[in-house]
């Protein structure tokens, strides 16, 4: 039997869909008994959401004022304290999980498997290496706690409708004061979230300015899409960092990915290879993006994007 502890990700109000995806990954392990752990200042609302995920057996809440912001140095000793008695510890492969889980693993003296993309057995998994140019099958020691992050683009979100028990725990763990939260700057938007959107409109360096990116936002709003960007576009300051798609940005799996003026560097392609349909519009017929695109159009994006927006209007 596998006792799996999943570190839930949330902002205090809403449980991040990465948690639902970790549950789907965990249910692939034979005999999985799943607990979701939530740390926060007040996790009542998100605990109710976690308890409703099908496949979750139990939700553990650890509420204390120091947990108001997800600092890895503060969270790690608490997660490590809860993890004893479990066979697996999963976190999402998001900036939250990637920051936290290795710190927990090291505290427990065990290795970590990053970016699980497929479960082949209780201790056998597949994960991408070399920006997804190779897929490694790896086997971990069944005698040790298995710590892993789950590549969220590889798993569908587990459905809701369950009703797990919710338990509150008080941990006698000393917390460090050497790490302090100062503030956040987030691009608040009404658009769908890039990591979970069904449609994504994305732009590259060819957009040539932050102002020109507005034509992509107009198209995205017309079709209810999230907006993404290549590293080149983010480096040039045309789009904020949270929009970056690729090996070092976000790995996404939308139903359709519309790439405008993106040449298709390997590092970018690794972020979109799970998209069901890739559409590429580029002036350069030799652009590598056309090698992976399901539908390609060799044309100037500055003509294509406004025309598409117009054709889809009304």
């Amino acid at each position: 039997m596998a006792k799996i502890l999943i570190i839930g990700e949330h902002d205090g109000k809403t449980l991040n869909p990465s948690t639902h995806k970790c549950v789907t990954c965990a249910t692939g392990i034979p005999g999985a008994e799943i607990t979701v752990l939530l740390l926060g200042a007040d996790t009542a609302a998100v605990a109710a959401q976690a308890a409703a995920i099908q496949g979750v057996n139990e939700v553990v809440r650890v509420d204390r004022p120091e947990n108001a912001h997800p600092l890895a140095a503060t969270f790690a000793p608490q997660v490590a304290a809860v993890a004893s008695g479990y066979t697996h510890l999963f976190g999402p492969s998001t900036s939250f999980g990637k920051d936290l889980t290795p710190r927990v693993a090291a505290l427990l003296g065990v290795p970590q498997v990053s970016d699980l993309m497929a479960v082949e057995g209780a201790h056998r998994f597949r994960r991408p290496i070399y920006a997804g140019n190779a897929i490694l099958t790896v086997e971990a020691d069944p005698a040790r706690l298995l710590v892993a992050t789950v590549r969220v683009a590889s798993f569908a979100a587990a459905p809701t409708g369950g009703s797990a028990a919710i338990v509150s725990r008080t941990l006698n763990v000393a917390l460090p004061t050497h790490t302090r939260y100062v503030g956040a700057h987030t691009g608040s938007t009404d658009r769908p979230d890039l990591q979970t959107a069904k449609r994504v409109v994305s732009g590259g360096r060819a957009l040539a300015s932050a102002d020109n990116f507005k034509i992509l936002f107009a198209l995205a709003d017309k079709i209810g899409a999230a907006v993404g960007a290549s590293r080149a576009a983010v480096d040039a300051g045309y789009a904020p960092n949270e929009l970056q798609v690729g090996q070092t940005g976000k790995i996404i799996a939308p139903e359709v990915y519309l790439a405008f003026g993106i040449s298709g560097a390997i590092q970018h392609l690794t972020g979109i290879k799970d998209a069901r349909t890739i559409v590429a519009v580029n002036k350069d017929p030799e652009a590598p993006i056309f090698e992976v695109a399901d539908v390609g159009l060799v044309a100037d994006l500055f003509q294509v994007v406004p025309e598409m927006t117009r054709l889809l209007g009304g």
Partner: peptide, 29 residues
């Protein structure tokens, strides 16, 4: 700590189609 079992090439995507203009692109999608 972790035993590599095998390293495989990733699945390749099928080569897609080229459309001639925006109208055809919208139509296909």
């Amino acid at each position: 700590w972790l035993k590599p079992v095998k390293t495989a090439a990733p699945p390749q995507r099928q080569k897609g189609i080229l459309v001639k203009d925006v109208a055809e692109l919208v139509d296909v999608l």
